[in-house]
Amino acid sequence: MRDDPTLTFRNGHRVTFVANGTDEQGPYLRLEHILLRPERLAGPHWHPVLGERWTVRRGRVRYRIDGVEIVASAGDTVDAPAGSVHEFWNEAPDTVIDHEIRPPLRHWEMFRLWHNLDRAGKTTRARVPRDPLALALLWDYQDGYLAGVPAWLQRSVLGSLARVARGCGYQRRWLENGPDLP
C-alpha cells in the first residue's frame, strides 16, 4: 500500500504520483488530482520556499491567490509562487488537475500522511485530523503556514506538537509503516 502511486481519500479524491526529478528549473514533483465533487480543497495558506502550479484538464477550480480570485477551466494554468497566500475550491464534478510543486520538499509525504489518517477515519468530514498531534505532524509535512496566524506562533505551538507526535511514534505509525487498513 505504501508504494501505491494513487491515494484515494474517503470522499473519492484521488491523488496520483506522476513524476519527480530535476530539470532546468530545478527539482519538481508532479501529481494528478481527480476530484469527484465540488468542495473546498485547501484553506488559506502559504509556503515560504515552494511554489505550486495547477493545470486544469477537466472541470473548473476557483483559486484565491494573494486576494485575487481566478476561475480556471480546462486548459488554464494557475501559479502560486512561494510566499503567496492561496486557497482553492473545486467547482465542478469530475475535475482533473495536474499539480506541480517546486521544490517538492515533503509534499508527497504530506499527501501520504493525510491519506493514511483519512482512510483510518482519523479526520473530520473536512479531512482535518481530529488528533492535535496528527494535525501538527501534517502541518509540519506541508512545509507551509496557515494564513492569518503568525508564523512564529505556528512554529512554536504546532512545531512543538509535531516534535511530540514524532516522539510518540506518529510518523512511524501513520507515514513510514502506514495503518492497517481494510
Score class of each variant (00 low, 15 high):
Asp3Glu: 07
Asp4Gly: 00
Thr6His: 02
Asn11Val: 07
Phe17Val: 04
Asn20Met: 12
Asp23Pro: 07
Gly26Glu: 07
Pro27Asp: 15
Tyr28Pro: 14
Leu31Gly: 04
His33Pro: 12
Ile34Trp: 15
Leu36Lys: 15
Arg40Ile: 14
Arg40Gly: 13
Leu41Met: 12
Gly43His: 09
Pro44Ile: 12
Trp46Ala: 04
Trp46Ser: 08
Pro48Thr: 13
Glu52Ile: 11
Val56Glu: 08
Arg58Ile: 11
Arg60Trp: 05
Val61Gly: 02
Tyr63Leu: 10
Ile65Phe: 11
Asp76Met: 09
Pro81His: 10
Ser84Glu: 12
Val85Asp: 14
Glu87His: 07
Phe88Tyr: 10
Asn90Tyr: 04
Ile97Cys: 09
Met110Asp: 05
Leu113Phe: 14
Trp114Ile: 03
Leu117Gln: 05
Ala120Cys: 03
Ala120Ser: 06
Gly121Arg: 10
Arg127Lys: 12
Val128His: 02
Pro132Ser: 06
Leu133Glu: 02
Leu138Ala: 06
Asp143Cys: 07
Leu146Pro: 05
Ala147Ser: 11
Pro150Met: 02
Ala151Gln: 10
Ala151Phe: 00
Trp152Thr: 03
Trp152Tyr: 08
Val157Pro: 08
Leu161Thr: 04
Ala162His: 10
Val164Cys: 01
Arg166Trp: 01
Arg173Trp: 00
Trp174Asp: 00
Leu175Met: 00
Asp180Ser: 12
